[in-house]
């Protein structure tokens, strides 16, 4: 399925993926009583944040992420996507790590769980990281900085 005007978009895959993410977050909320915020859970798993969540449970969630990716990629013949070079990945990783701790969440915690709850903090956080995300790609394009082959 394609979207008129956007030949590269995959709206159906996006929607299916999004519904699965929503179901996963719903399972975490209604099953375990917790927010499926990846940055917070990762910090908890690696002992980088205090909290009430059992570390074993945090680890189980984190291990599930690549497991789910593996299940999908083993069923499809699609070629692996391209990633940025190591230096770029390291710089981006540090900024994401600092930003998500200071901002108390990322795309999953604020963007999915918080927005759907109409949390004011998550609304502000999501609007902010979307805005700086748009601005960063625009600035990098203007400067001719290509990170992907």
């Amino acid at each position: 399925m394609t979207l008129p005007g956007f030949p590269d978009a995959a709206p159906l895959d996006g929607l299916i993926g999004g519904v699965l993410i929503g179901l996963a977050a719903a399972l975490m909320l209604l099953g375990a009583g917790r927010i499926a915020g990846v940055s917070g859970i990762a910090a908890r798993a690696f002992g980088l944040a205090s909290g009430s969540q059992p570390r074993l449970g945090a680890w189980a969630f984190i291990i599930g992420l690549p497991l789910g990716a593996l299940i999908v990629t083993s069923q499809t013949a699609a070629s692996a996507p391209a990633f940025a070079n190591p230096v770029t990945l390291a710089i981006a990783g540090v900024i994401v790590g600092v930003g998500t701790r200071l901002g108390s969440g990322c795309t999953s915690g604020h963007g999915v769980c918080g927005l759907s709850r109409l949390s004011q903090r998550s609304l502000v956080a999501t609007a902010t990281f979307m805005a700086t995300g748009f601005a960063t790609v625009a600035a990098m394009n203007a400067l001719g900085l290509a990170v992907l082959p």
Partner: peptide
Amino acid sequence: GSALFGIGWA
């Protein structure tokens, strides 16, 4: 923090 995160994400 969210502003930084958006930059790193991008």
